[in-house]
Design a binder for these strands. Structure first.
Length: 799
DNA sequence: CAGTGAGCGAGCTTCCGCTTGACTT
């Protein structure tokens, strides 16, 4: 039996280290934290110095009992969790839970998984740092107090099951604030002037640095240029250089994979996890840009052999984010000589990105020669400017160029970074074309998942392990949606001078289209406004930064953690109490005006089933007329909907005719417009306006749907019409009314299924909710009487 | 998704960070 038990956080890490240490060591993993606060109210005793009640969660029981057994058999237990606040706490929880004794326990730390680093760590053991543990407890207790006191306030004042927390509420606030900036933004137009000189190979562009806000001025400028002489007034050439970016951290990997590969942050992390488990890359949850000495040597060797000596440049990077704890290396390939790997295509692509970025980070800078040519206009006092750039040495650009978040329009001006033909001072130029194009200023960009992570990191909010889950949480809670939105057409004016004539025209462009951007929902905005109004301190962008500063002081032993929490908690708790007692229910109600025909008041607000418009006041007794209601549609918001748009909502649902003795109705659901007929639903094709559907069209669509459904049918049962065997997207399945059942693998031919077999399969489905990534299946058939609507909605939102 | 916008008023929801698997139409 091994004399030593060494415990790390990750099983993949354990495997690697076991290889370095030999027979005397058993290396095991704790799989992260092994204990957490109990779920109930009494997890923290407010009146007893915030003492905590911890428990081992069910899914950790097995790990803990195995570690307990091994610890008993070992002479020495080495606690090798990460060197940061959470890692120290993991060691402490292990110490307590496994019942370790101080003389037989060693705490060791390393920042990189290399043999020398591990050996050095083993030679320098220490004891558990209780200051650091206290800092973690303060963090944990504060998050629990905030989350579990704030959320119930929302249940009372907004809607059940909502949540609030130190991290998620600020993430939502960022998105709500940004959306409002975009909505109130007024685009300003100005004419941008671009000249084209020379022909063929010698052609190049020059731009006027200033823009004209009035069309007359732009026109006058072009007019003046008809007879003007263009001369090179000055020519300046300067060397320029560009340096590579630091190797990836979690946050920069998520950003770059989003820009270059179009991955969501969750997908990036899933793929990176697989690369890590296969041993291709180092740990993927890190805030460090540091590379180990071993890695630096390996990178150098690879660069020199693949590209030559002059492409290598030794570089050390320093972290920019304030809250970085740097318990790991930067994300890099384990072996730099693997330029590519075997695996699925998304794994290959992410690996190559990581390899290129890490290699480039140790390469020399790219060198350019930048030329600025100023061109005088004989009839005007302004100069035109042409920028040229020639690469003299590619350096790191040989392998990698970092992506940019900017859209093309905001990037460098026309003619910039282009290659200029040979030019000389005093040279007279031949104008081919001169254009003045109306350009509009752009609103601030909405957040993508990745740019939100970047912003959170800048604010020091959240950790590498929580960025992806936080983004999921705010979407799952329905505060935020990731969506595509169509843009709208916009006219812009363009004046062109060519061959001595000025041509004026109006062109059309598409603007404001968004893909994969984060939009706040109405509930997100209402919850945010409620928190900003009543709990300003918690959703302040600097709240985390200021508590982090205090956690640091606790970690250094300069402050008592219970005192810190007490100072925070007492006033916070008072706010919670007074908000519960005095605050009104938050519905986001807004008056739209009066109904044009009836003169009744129209308003919008959030109800139990989402945002809706109401016409007329709430009745005070039964004799009064009931108000009319209509739900808002996807993409509409109570904040921005107009009176006209609200009136449109009452035009549907609409009866379009009768078929087979049953009415056909057109309405709009969550997935768009549809026709309902005899409890069947047919979605409407995009081309058809739901307001102009004719009876004939509706019948046609219903028949087409029936035909399509018949094609899917493999087998029907005369004894029960609700049971069918169908061919679905993922192969055959059995449909029982609304319940779908997968056909087990041992049935190879679905045609052989008997009715009895089908029924047995349906009965075998668990009666309670079956939670999977794709929602609930069995639960949909037998909804629990009252909870059903809320549950169904929550699941639908997840999709 | 699929016609509501309360109600008997039970018992439930919820935080952030550290880790992987086991889930499925």
């Amino acid at each position: 039996m091994a004399k030593n038990l060494l415990i790390v956080e990750s099983p993949a890490k354990a495997k690697t280290i076991e290889g370095y240490l030999g027979k005397d060591f058993t290396v095991k993993s704790s799989y992260g934290h092994i204990r957490d606060l109990v779920k109930s109210e009494d997890a923290i005793d407010i009146n007893n110095n915030f003492s905590q009640r911890y428990e081992v969660p069910a899914d950790k029981k097995q790990v803990v009992s195995e570690l307990k057994k091994l610890a008993k058999e070992a002479d020495i237990v080495w606690l090798a969790s990460d060197e940061d606040r959470e890692g120290e706490a993991i060691s402490w929880h292990l110490f307590e839970t496994l019942g370790l004794k101080e003389p037989d326990t060693r705490r060791i730390v390393f920042h990189e998984i290399t043999k020398p680093a591990i050996m050095k760590a083993i030679e320098n053991p220490r004891k558990i740092d209780y200051n650091l543990v206290n800092a973690q407890q303060a963090r944990r207790v504060l998050d629990r107090l905030v989350g579990f006191e704030l959320s119930p306030v929302l249940w009372k004042k907004v809607k059940p099951s909502l949540s609030a927390g130190r991290v998620q509420s600020v993430a939502v606030r960022l998105i709500v604030d940004r959306e409002r900036e975009v909505n109130k933004f007024k685009a300003e137009a100005a004419f941008k002037v671009v000249a084209l000189f020379g022909k063929g190979k010698d052609a190049f562009k020059a731009e006027l640095p200033e823009r004209f806000s009035k069309q007359e001025d732009a026109e006058q400028f072009l007019q003046d240029c008809i007879k003007a002489i263009f001369e090179i007034k000055s020519l300046e050439t300067k060397p320029a250089k560009r340096s590579p970016a630091a190797p990836f951290t979690t946050s920069t990997l998520q950003q770059e994979a989003s820009r270059k590969l179009g991955y969501s942050v969750a997908r990036t992390m899933q793929v990176a996890q697989r690369l890590y488990e296969s041993g291709y890359i180092t740990y993927m949850r890190t805030d460090s840009v540091n590379l180990s000495d071993t890695a630096l040597d390996a990178a150098q060797k690879e660069i020199v052999s693949a590209y030559g000596d002059k492409y290598h440049q030794h570089r050390k990077y320093k972290t920019k984010s304030a809250g970085a704890q740097e318990a790991h290396e930067a994300i890099r390939p384990t072996y730099f000589n693997n330029h590519t790997i075997d695996g699925e295509s998304n794994e290959k692509r992410l690996y190559e990105l990581i390899w290129k970025r890490a290699i480039a980070s140790q390469m020399s800078e790219a060198q350019f020669e930048k030329t600025v040519a100023k061109i005088s206009i004989s009839t005007r006092k302004e100069d035109l400017v042409a920028n040229g750039e020639v690469m003299k040495f590619d350096g790191f650009l040989k392998v990698y160029l970092e992506g940019s978040d900017e859209d093309e329009d905001n990037q460098t001006a026309d003619g910039d970074n282009a290659i200029l033909p040979p030019l000389s001072k005093g040279q007279i130029l031949d104008l081919q074309e001169l254009s003045a194009t109306e350009r509009f200023s752009r609103p601030p960009a909405r957040y993508t998942e990745a740019s939100l992570v970047k912003k959170l990191e800048e604010l020091g909010i959240g950790r590498p392990s929580t960025y992806a889950p936080t983004i999921s949480t705010i979407q799952n809670r329905g505060y935020v949606v990731k969506e595509e939105r169509e843009g709208r057409q916009r006219n812009f004016r363009m004046l062109t001078l060519k061959g001595g004539n000025i041509v004026k025209e109006t062109r059309i462009e598409n603007t404001g289209a968004e893909r994969g951007k984060l939009f706040p929902t109405d509930i997100g905005a209402v919850v945010n406004d409620f928190l900003v109004l009543h709990f300003q301190g918690i959703v302040d962008f600097n709240f985390t930064a200021s508590v982090e500063k205090q956690f640091d002081e606790i970690a250094q032993g300069l402050q008592d953690w219970t005192k810190m929490i007490r100072t925070f908690y007492d006033p916070f708790h008072k706010d919670v109490q007074s908000t519960i007692e005095t605050a009104d229910k938050a519905t986001g109600e807004r008056e739209l005006g009066v109904h044009p025909e009836s003169g009744k008041k129209m308003s919008v607000r959030i109800g139990r089933y989402g945002p809706f418009v109401q016409v007329g006041e709430n009745p005070t007794d039964e004799s009064e007329e009931k108000p009319l209601y209509a739900s808002l549609r996807t993409g509409q918001s109570i904040e921005t909907i107009s009176l006209e748009e609200a009136l449109e909502l009452f035009k549907l649902p609409k009866v379009v005719g009768e078929y087979e003795g049953k009415v056909m109705k057109v309405a709009i659901g969550r997935f768009g417009p549809y026709i309902s007929h005899n409890s069947a639903f047919v979605s409407l094709p995009k081309e058809i306006d739901p307001l102009d559907v004719t009876e004939e069209q509706a019948i046609e669509l219903i028949e087409a749907k029936r035909k399509k459904d018949a094609e899917k049918l493999i087998k029907a049962f005369p004894e029960d019409e609700t049971v069918k065997v169908l061919n679905g997207r993922w192969g055959p399945y059995i449909e029982f009314g609304k319940l779908n059942v997968k056909i087990p693998k041992d049935i190879t031919d679905p045609l052989t299924l008997t009715y009895e077999q089908c029924k047995a399969l349906a009965d075998a489905m668990p009666k309670d909710a079956k939670k999977g990534r794709f929602g609930k299946t069995a639960a949909a058939a037998k909804p629990a009487a009252k909870k059903a609507p809320a549950k169904k909605k929550a699941v639908a939102k997840k999709k």
